[in-house]
């Protein structure tokens, strides 16, 4: 600082290292808003359920595939775990990062594809978004989450591409992870609320 050049005897303030890098903080705030968004959807669903006369799920509607989705849930959680280990390897500068990140991405992709197949089957059974409260809320909640998974999937692909070109730094990787952990973490809650 040029103030020093004046030779004045006061201490020159130093710019402090931020507690969290800008990207991570911004992403955390965004994720907080997203959590509230999903809280709103879940609240709406709870109220929607409570209005059903004759119990929930409404009689005469197709059953949701609970067991198959459990497998899918496991796949998504495994993707989150893989990303966690990818980050640890990345911090060490380990070459395993690439493989772990790829596993995480593939599992995420598997989740989306599997869910798409599930949807096709359900639509075949007559559960559509306009067929009643069950269909409406099912596609709303799960569909919104699916959109987030796709967005996270694209973000992870982007980080993977950067990793291949060797210009991935933690200021890109860290926010991407925050988003993916959110996507992974909110799913069990939705599974519990919607399917069980």
């Amino acid at each position: 600082m040029p103030d020093d050049a004046l030779g004045l005897p006061y201490s020159v303030p130093a710019r402090r290292e931020p507690v969290l890098p800008n990207g991570v903080l911004g992403m955390l705030i965004f994720v907080a808003t997203e959590i509230m968004f999903f809280s709103g959807l879940i609240s709406a669903f709870v109220i929607g359920k409570s209005n059903a006369i004759g119990g929930w799920p409404p009689p005469g509607q197709p059953r949701l595939p609970v067991e198959e989705t459990a497998l899918n849930t496991a796949a998504l959680l495994a993707s989150g775990v893989a990303l966690y280990f990818a980050n640890r390897a990345f911090k060490r500068g380990d070459a395993k990062t690439k493989r772990l990140l790829l596993i995480s991405i593939v599992l995420g992709g598997f989740f989306v594809v599997f869910q798409g197949a599930e949807w096709v089957a359900l639509i075949g059974e007559g559960l559509t978004v306009t067929s009643g409260q069950l269909g409406g809320f099912f596609y709303l909640l799960v569909g919104t989450h699916a959109l987030h998974v796709v967005a996270g999937f694209i973000i992870l692909l982007y980080t993977y591409r950067k990793l291949l070109h060797d210009d991935l730094d933690r200021f890109t990787f860290w926010p991407a992870q925050v988003f993916w952990y959110f996507v992974v973490g909110v799913w069990p809650i939705l599974y519990w609320q919607v399917y069980l």
Partner: peptide
């Protein structure tokens, strides 16, 4: 967040015909 959730639902009601 909850309002955006509500807006999505209202939009679906208006356009797609959910209830």
């Amino acid at each position: 967040g909850p309002l955006i959730a509500g807006a999505v639902m209202l939009f679906m009601d208006q356009v797609v015909g959910t209830g």
